[in-house]
């Protein structure tokens, strides 16, 4: 069994109010390390066996069509060891 991870993030130029809210909550709790926070989504997809290039291409397609909205989001597909 392998796990394929798809990370979806808002594009840098798109305002992320949720990330901003987290960024402003951190210092209220004494965490002063952050200059910026962006919030995204992570999909964990399990498949039988090691993924083939064809399966990874299918996941890429699904990421573009369904898991992300390319108008506002970028995605990265990777296989988790």
């Amino acid at each position: 069994m392998a796990k394929i991870v798809v990370d979806v993030m808002l594009k840098p130029e798109i305002l992320d109010p949720q990330g901003n809210a987290v960024a402003s909550a951190l210092p209220r709790l004494g965490f002063t390390f952050a200059t910026s926070v962006r919030q995204g989504k992570r999909f964990e997809i399990e498949i039988d066996g090691e993924p083939t290039p064809a399966q990874l291409a299918e996941v890429e397609k699904a990421a573009e069509v369904l898991l992300s909205n390319p108008v506002i989001e970028n995605y990265v597909v990777r296989v988790e060891k």
């Binding site: 808002l10 109010p17 949720q18 909205n69 108008v71 506002i72």
Partner: peptide, 17 residues
């Protein structure tokens, strides 16, 4: 309609949440 690509752009979270 935006997700269907019948209209361009997208609707995102209100700026003040």
């Amino acid at each position: 309609l935006c997700e269907s690509h019948l209209l361009p752009g997208a609707l995102t979270r209100n700026a003040d949440l």
